[in-house]
Write a protein that binds this DNA or RNA. Structure first.
Lengths: 334, 334
DNA sequence: TATCAATTGTCTCACGTTGTCATAACCATT
DNA sequence: AATGGTTATGACAACGTGAGACAATTGATA
């Protein structure tokens, strides 16, 4: 591999002058600078980052520990946002796919310590509380938080999401929303329920009994909602005029279930949700109107926090906005 | 930060002996080893990877350049597979989200050169030909290939996918399959068509005219199939008994279109596809029977190739298998 | 001519780790 | 006790970069 010493020899100059050119020291004659720069370009010399890291005692590396890069495709946007900021700032990101509390987490942190990483971001795919791993590294929690609250944290503003979505559908004339909420172990589910009720109050409606909650167990299947709640509610005396699903992945089986009940989404009943999961939300027919979770922005904010000098523990909430498609039309006044 | 020198001072021994303990050199007296190891554990010392890299003149880092970590969730499995192998071998993976041929690609390669990465993996989300970037680094192409063919390459065996899927549905008694294929610019689409026809020949059927191809333009929308092909074919004299979709994302609008035509998937017409995109394929109702693209395995194979010593240019094909759900029942003999 | 600033070069050290080589300690055999 | 051999330990250099101290050279200006 080419080194600065090689460049110096080729340019018939001293190591020091080459170093000056590379580090943009203004005390270099323009002609010399150009001559050396040409040789650098010619040889394709790239500085050895290891040497630079050792010399400068800092690494420009930030770790990103994600609980499941695999399962949820929304978490990808967290990664993308973080990485875009990192690269814009000339930093490197190392991605780790871990399981919280297991060996994979410890190993990832050890690996980052070997690289003398300046910070790490701990991300989950659902907004919830997590135990903080023991580490000396500066840490930013993303989409999760710890009990103590003395760690920098970036979260979606789930209360706002619930409030704004509900406000919007009330504005469109809906009066009997039914909220098929995610499990209450997830902080996001609790906050959205708060927002839902608060928006109802603001409009003079009591929505406290308009929330259904998935029973325990893996919430992905949603069989409880689809097999029990929906058939009963939709065929009752006063069926809901709009369904709010806990996530886009829930809206899909809900669409199918409604079809089986002979109902047409967007005509007989509106459906909305949370996530804006691409490309699913767009491919559903009618297209799913849904509150977008601001994952990309959250990733950006988290990386900015990780790279910022002052590490005052802050809890930052990032807002999301409604993405309109056809599943939530303006309500015809009956 | 603690260094080996600090450990040596604390253990009242030499720098070299500490180094020996850390590198598990057997030429160390057990008593000394234990004494030093205790101090290492106590101080929480972690070796400085930068120094190690500089000393050994190699970096244990492999780059993974992906064209769209973002858009396609299937590409995540490529990343996961590669990363699992890398970590198992004690290597580090650096992930880059790039656009082929643009600055982001060059920058990523430069960044990897700075870290003296031992290899890089170039991945695309669709099986297709790509121009090879100029780099000195050992390169492995993943899910794509270059014209010259002198670079290590890992590809899905799309011909096998098409052949096996078709063979299976013929075995189940279907006789009028219709293949809604992806754009022919994608190598995978061409190979699957070959497999489709070959499987027909093996069963004494000429399937050459049973393939439809999306016209130019972004293939994601699939409006051509849904709006033009399907209504015409399904209401024709001899409608298909099974539809083969180019990808799971196409199967979703196809489900909706069939429903609009008053047809029930799995009863009136079977549907199959390629990908096994999670969690979509499972959440569709009926569950989508689909040829799984072996992305996780491909990621593993690519990383193994990247880490292997001998770099003989090989093109490796990875096979996929059918994932059975309800959308392709055994055909009732009519 | 003296003085000054700009430019370039020499020399040295430091970062943390590990390979090479040398030394020291110990044991067994003659 | 002398020899040879093994085991254990240590001294030192080197990887590539960056920075400081300071000298040498050049050209311009007072």
């Amino acid at each position: 591999m080419t080194t600065q010493r090689d460049i110096a020899r080729l340019a018939k100059t001293s190591l020091k002058t080459v170093s000056r050119v590379i580090n943009r020291d203004p005390l270099v004659n323009e002609a010399t600078r150009k001559r050396i720069q040409d040789i650098i370009d010619q040889t394709g010399y790239v500085p050895n980052e290891a040497a630079r890291m050792m010399r400068s005692q800092s690494s420009d590396i930030v770790g990103f520990l994600s609980e499941d890069v695999a399962t949820t495709s929304s978490s990808i946007d967290l990664v993308r946002g973080a990485q875009d900021v990192a690269h814009a700032m000339g930093k490197q990101m190392m991605l780790f796919n871990i399981r919280r509390g297991e060996a994979s987490e410890t190993e990832a942190l050890a690996q980052l310590a070997r690289f003398r990483a300046s910070a790490c971001i701990l991300a989950t795919s659902f907004h919830r509380e997590v135990p903080l791993p023991r580490t000396d590294m500066k840490t930013v929690l993303l989409n999760c938080y710890d009990a103590d609250g003395d760690t920098a944290t970036v979260l979606p503003d789930d209360r706002q999401l619930g409030y704004d979505l509900t406000t919007e559908l009330l504005r469109r004339g809906y009066r009997r929303p039914l909220f098929l909420n995610l499990a209450p172990e997830l902080a996001g589910a609790r906050l959205r329920a708060e927002g839902f009720i608060a928006a109802g109050q603001a409009a003079g409606l009591d929505l406290a009994d308009r929330i259904r909650t998935a029973s325990a167990g893996p919430d992905r299947d949603h069989t409880y909602f689809v097999d029990d709640i929906l058939p009963a509610e939709m065929t009752g005396a006063e069926p809901p005029d709009v369904l709010i699903c806990g996530q886009d992945l829930m809206a899909l089986p809900v669409y199918f279930a409604l079809t089986r009940l002979g109902l047409v989404v967007g005509r007989d009943v509106a459906v909305t949700s949370f996530d804006n999961l691409q490309p699913l939300a767009k491919l559903m027919q009618p297209g799913l109107t849904t509150m977008e979770l601001p994952y990309y922005d959250m990733g950006r904010v988290a990386m900015q926090q990780a790279l910022s000098e002052h590490d005052s523990p802050v809890r930052q909430l990032v807002q999301g906005q409604l993405v309109e498609r056809a599943s939530l039309p303006l309500r015809q006044s009956a």
